[in-house]
Write a protein that binds this DNA or RNA. Structure first.
Lengths: 265, 265
DNA sequence: CAACGGAATTTGTCTGAGTATACTTGTGCG
DNA sequence: CGCACAAGTATACTCAGACAAATTCCGTTG
């Protein structure tokens, strides 16, 4: 739950620096980094320390190195985008909005189903954790760090409660999206919509053990969050899949209405 | 597309060996590895080479190391399960069946939606790749390596065609499940059901640009694949979520029928 | 013109030493 | 007796320099 947040060693900091440069596009795919000797010399560190940094980047798919050719930046297709570090590096600077949209797209696939599973598999303790997080969220303004931390705790506990190890391992990825979007939405104007009721609906469905209600509530939460960021003033027009997003939201609502009706018939 | 499959260096092989031992449970969470000097000495490699191996494992969340305490194996919650290497190490030996089930659960969330997106965003070239893969699959027996490779190519191209970078980065994870399950199913008896028609339905829907049909077809493909492995003789009874799987399948079908009916009304 | 072989370059590996960190134990003070 | 703080110690961390291996490039040769 709590991050050890241990001080980064030399290789860790170098890997982070290079990693941020790569994911932010300063170092573009195909580019070859400086040689080990020059790079380590320039940063005043030993060659072995620099090599370990490169090894980290290789392990995360950002670069690859061969004798005689050097260390090149990989194409984005090879990056391990779901790696917690890589994703945190992406959000370290202004992220590519297409990527953010893709991340939300993934959330909209995963989180509603995770909520449905959580409604079946959650333990009493996980309910307690989610309830506590919800309590904190309702007591604080969305601009505070307390609120964002509680928001992350809520989503983390939900994924954990899904009982699916792969979903749990997406926790940091989802949290990155969750936390970033809350900050982003409020960069220029205060939040219009209160997100707490959405969360409360999800929680109640999970606590009540109703998978379909949980899926529905979480689906709505994610869709509304996506609408919020794509309608924010700072969201770029080019990536504005706004039409699609709102259309999706309406379609989903009508679909559900239709389903409900069909059950009545 | 083509794996470089470059020869593993010393740190790479050591990382793989240790990684396999960790994910297979030989080295359990909390255990502390031998010290750097003994470990490197025992393997007849230099300390720096061994250190780089450990750095790789740290980067993938399998271990963490601190001075004075050594290098410990992390809890599974910290493992980067979606890392391509970690997942390949998991399937290197007999994998934990609960994990396999969870992976299929994730597939069933992601792949149908990916198919739907692919139906909207696929390029002509991606269609060609998928068609070619399908062609190979229909010309070979499912026991051959050619068939499995084509199967992987099909699913990879589909995820690629979804236009979502995060889904694309799940390619290797999904492929691991795809390939393993095909082999697993046929360990004791030949495959009863021909999986090619399922794939063809998915392909046709994507080529025709029909998201809903693609989602439906892919959903069926994954569900049937899951049923196939959970009904295989070797699948352990304890993990046999068979009831749930088949129940899910039926529920999905009725739900879709209901929707179709509602559209008619 | 092609195939082969050697040279140059860069990462890969090794060795050995010293440093920093965090746990453990001891010690003094309340 | 107990608690805060300091010293000790085991371990990973960092450094330095040398040599080895791999890969590309280019010249040579058939």
């Amino acid at each position: 739950m709590k991050k050890p947040s241990q001080k980064l060693r030399i290789p860790g900091t170098i890997a982070r620096d290079l990693g941020v440069m790569i994911v932010s596009g300063v170092l573009k795919p195909g580019m070859v980094l400086e040689g080990e000797v020059e790079a380590s010399d320039q940063r005043k560190v030993s060659r072995s320390a620099y090599r370990e940094a490169v090894r980290i980047l290789v392990a995360k798919g950002l670069v690859y190195s061969k004798p005689k050719v050097g260390t090149r930046v990989n194409d984005r297709a090879a990056w391990h985008l779901l790696d917690p570090d890589v994703l945190s590096w992406i959000f370290q600077v202004e992220p590519d909005y297409t990527l953010v949209y893709s991340l939300f797209e993934m959330r909209s696939m995963v989180e509603p189903e995770a909520a449905a599973l959580a409604a079946e598999r959650r333990t009493p303790n996980q309910i307690k954790v989610m309830a506590a997080a919800l309590e904190i969220m309702s007591r604080n303004k969305t601009t505070t760090k307390e609120w964002r931390d509680a928001d992350e705790t809520f989503h983390s506990a939900l994924l954990e409660a899904s009982g699916n190890a792969f979903l749990s391992s997406m926790t940091s990825s989802i949290n990155a999206a969750v936390s970033w979007s809350t900050i982003f939405k409020q960069r220029h104007e205060p939040l219009k919509r209160d997100p707490v009721p959405d969360h409360r609906r999800v929680f109640k469905a999970i606590a009540a053990g109703s998978p379909s209600a949980a899926r529905k509530a979480m689906g709505q939460l994610v869709r509304l969050a996506l609408i919020d960021i794509t309608t924010a003033p700072k969201w770029p027009g080019k990536v504005s899949r706004l039409k699609k997003a709102t259309a999706l939201h309406k379609a989903q609502k009508t679909r559900k209405t239709a389903r409900k009706l069909s059950l009545l018939g």
